[in-house]
Nucleic acid binder design. Structure first.
Lengths: 230, 230
DNA sequence: ATTTCTGCAATACGCTGTATCGCAACAGTA
DNA sequence: TACTGTTGCGATACAGCGTATTGCAGAAAT
């Protein structure tokens, strides 16, 4: 019985874990958006059959949850600035930047409660930045209000960005004259105010308008933190 | 050639239009969520083959666009109150109420720019409520900031609502003790601030917290409208 | 050496969005 | 009235999806 007679041992399947699965899924999503993420394709990237994944997750939705939490790790600030306002600003901008890197996050933000360890760590940091500046309920309201703004603003920004990419027109051009639908609608005269805004408004870059709206909201929070619980 | 010999004339297919298609789709979504909307099921409700729909829409995404615009018709206020603040408040609450009636709207809000006639009419009304109170850019920023808040807050509310429905636990119970995952995480001591908020915070009903956050944002807007363009 | 257990792969099912194709009924013309 | 062109519908088809089920091979346990 020489070596040559004996068959090679069967190749054991590559070991898997959630980390590798999530990384593969994120890579797919970064390349082709959320809709490019299918359990079959994720598994294929890992040289596995689709059903293998069900040992690690029990539903596709859970995979999305893991992906989101993985990005929250990028959002978690490395060091916490002292000022509450700066802390919230940093959180907002880190969230925005992470979403620009992983645009599919815009589709998932706010879709389900985020209970992963990284998301909770982010919440912890944010809450503790405001802790003690007002009663608990006020602080909670502050954080929720700011993060509602963040979610909504980011979603709109990504939606516009995709629309521009799909039509090849900048938001401005597309409204002003090039977008046949919109210009036709405006020409009806049924939307005089809207028409004025479209034609006479200034184009502002996305980051600035995000930051400005954020500052307004932070001003509102500041006012509530200043005065004691209503 | 008696009547009996002649066959009945072939039944002509029921005439279709976008209105009927969208109504059927909305009915399906109201009953079973967005994922219950398939072109086949919509068509079946109308006694038609799936491919028939492609005469009226060219993609499922377009059907969603039509559905959203249909709901914007419910959001459009019947009469415009004079005060800008009241106008924005009404807009926010009508949007929220519409989303509570059609919870799938939460999945679509902010996903794509809304360019349908009803959405534009809503924008027109909103913009004109603020028109003249500040320069165009400030007004635009105000409307966008408020609507970012609205989108984000509604999404979170619906997300929580769905989580409660899925687990059978109220948000509070679910965090406090009943949710095994969350309580285990809090017990690790890695999230002290979060733990305090969960345990000592008051439960506030969704409508109140929506309204409160909204008021804060409106306060911020008021401050910017008061002073001339920065 | 034999049995039990574990976990992977293959197969399968019902469903999806949509491209293609052939035909039947209408409109227009001779 | 006969014919022809066009339109739009239905059927068929395809590739892909999430996931339930099944069977089997290797590892572990006796």
């Amino acid at each position: 019985m020489t070596v040559w007679d004996r068959p090679e041992p069967p190749t054991r399947p590559v070991p898997l874990d959630r980390e590798r699965i999530v990384a593969a899924a994120i890579a797919l999503a970064d390349e082709g958006g959320l809709e490019a993420v299918s359990l079959r394709k994720v598994a294929a990237r890992l040289d596995a059959g689709p059903m293998r994944l069900y040992g690690y997750i029990s539903t596709k939705e859970e995979l999305f949850d893991l992906m989101v939490d993985e990005v929250y790790a990028e959002i978690l600030p490395e060091e916490q600035p002292g000022d509450w306002r700066e802390a919230l600003r940093v959180h907002a901008h880190r969230t925005r930047q992470a979403t620009l890197r992983h645009q599919w996050l815009a589709d998932l933000l706010g879709r389900r409660p985020s209970l992963g360890p990284n998301a909770m760590a982010v919440t912890e940091v944010t809450l503790s930045a405001l802790d003690g500046l007002a009663d608990l309920d006020t602080v909670m309201r502050a954080v929720e209000t700011v993060s509602a703004y963040i979610t909504g603003a980011i979603r709109r920004e990504i939606a516009n960005l995709r629309a521009e990419r799909a039509t090849g027109l900048s938001r401005r051009d597309w409204q002003r004259a090039s977008g046949p639908h919109v210009s036709r609608m405006l020409a009806t005269g049924r939307f005089p105010a809207l028409a004025r805004f479209v034609h006479e408004g200034t184009e502002v870059d996305a980051e600035t308008s995000f930051a400005t709206g954020l500052d307004w909201v932070l001003d509102a929070v500041a006012a509530k933190l200043a005065r004691p619980p209503a």
